[in-house]
Design a binder for these strands. Sequence first.
DNA 1: TAAATCGTCC
Length: 569
Amino acid sequence: MIEIGGLGSKMCRAAKFLRFLQGCNSMDRLRKIHAQVLLHGYQDHPDVSDKLLSFCATSAAGNLSFARLLFSRLPHPATNHWNALIRGAARGGVPLHAISDYNVMMRRASSRPDAFTFAFLLKACALAKAKSKCRESHASIVRSGFSSHVIVGTNLVRAYADNGFISEARMVFDEMPEKDLVSWNSMISCYCHAGVHDDALKVYDEMRLAGVGLDEFTAVGLLSSCAHLGALNFGVWIHKFAEENGFLRRSLFVGNALIDMYAKCGSLDKAHRVFDGMRRRDNFTWNSMITGLGIHGHADEAISLFERMLMAGVQPNSISFLGLLMGCSHHGLVEDGLKYFQLMSSAYNIKPDLKHYGCMVDMFGRAGKLDKALEFINDLSCKDDPVLWRTLLNASRIHGNLEMGEIAIQNLVKLSAHNAGDCALLSDIYEHAGDGEGVSRMRKMVKDQGIKTTPGWSWIEIHGKVRKFVVGDTSHAESKEIYKKLKEMISKADSLGYAKETSKISEKDHSTVKWLEKYVDDGADYHSEMLAIALGLATTPEGTSLRIVKNLREYGLKNSGFTGLCEML
DNA sequence: TAAATCGTCC
């Protein structure tokens, strides 16, 4: 009795609906298609209803609540229907709904979760910062036998990392029986986001050992870490590799990351060359170059690049202005800084955030306008942020302004945000003012209140490898040479009689020696940057540029024997 | 038929 013709036409009509859906680009149109589906009784046709649901849940033209409505009419929702709902909620900015949908699915227990379910659920856990759900999902994944699934595993790594569980992420990654390039890239990007850049670069070493190649995603992650670690040589290697493999043509990200890397490593001319060579530029491209110039105090160039950006029709955003403000503050252009600070909200409707305020305080402070800086902070609604007071404290130290330094630390204390670094800064001001009592008061404060010191690390890239140092580090294979070199440096400093004959050495040399003495006097535990420098001097030929990066500060110098130490850049 | 990785800001 079933008419073949009828069935055939039914299939044709279903196919037609699906075609309509593919071309559907608005909710209005979607409703019309849905009305037609209902009119012709196709709401239960599996192809049509599945497609309709997933389209509503995940397409830009779709609508989540409409998807829910369709879902609620399914008498026996299958796993893929649940998946569509969870995926849609996760992508649609309501990750908590995705999680509760998953919970309902489990409670009903009529359909089992599959790899897709977990992939979407983990995405939601990452977005919602759902820490405990993240662990719980991990357990469910193991229980239901999906723990060896590559994509589920990769998502789990990401979910843990986005929730701040970096070592858990790493553990999951290590236990994955099968990893693909995306898994490796995810691990690198997790370390990048967590700011653990030396570990990011280490992942690359492991990739090489595992015989895994790299693509533009890998390159972008590694370049970002190179930028933070000052690993210029490795960055140059990636640049070469990217050029040979067409990464630059394929991805704007790679060019942008290269600009950032070169700029942060101090090679502004090479950053500019990459910038000039790019066929296409987006606001990241412009911003990377502007902030690169800004960080290094090239305010005029940053400003003219900003003007060029406007001419090119690219909209500036808050980071463009941050780059400009950094340039102005590092170059003492208070007037220009103020102008752009006002321009950002008046002409571009961009609300300044804490970082912009911090730049302004820094700008006034560096320029010696400490009263103006204080007034500026007091006018802010976010004046309870320690960063602002710390910036003021630093400016007070630069200008030896004891009174303002005390105001700054009082506010930090009031916010219970004062750390050992702050006390050291104020102690420095007391010392310069010849106030020995102030110095010991600071020392006592650190001791009595048990204020924690932030551990300082230093990195140096030698022969393409990034090496990390902590205070008094003896963990390196070259430890002997390092300490030998240090002793050599110290005795040379002594024999040259720096302290006594200051007239013979330039201002720059003098400050370097003061810097050296300060660390040497601290006793047996040599500071991390001293150890890094010693290794650099001991293991590179003369004339090699050495870049030492600290988590607290940055130095550059050239190896030309010991005297090279005086060429601090 | 569904899925996962990328950049500028301290």
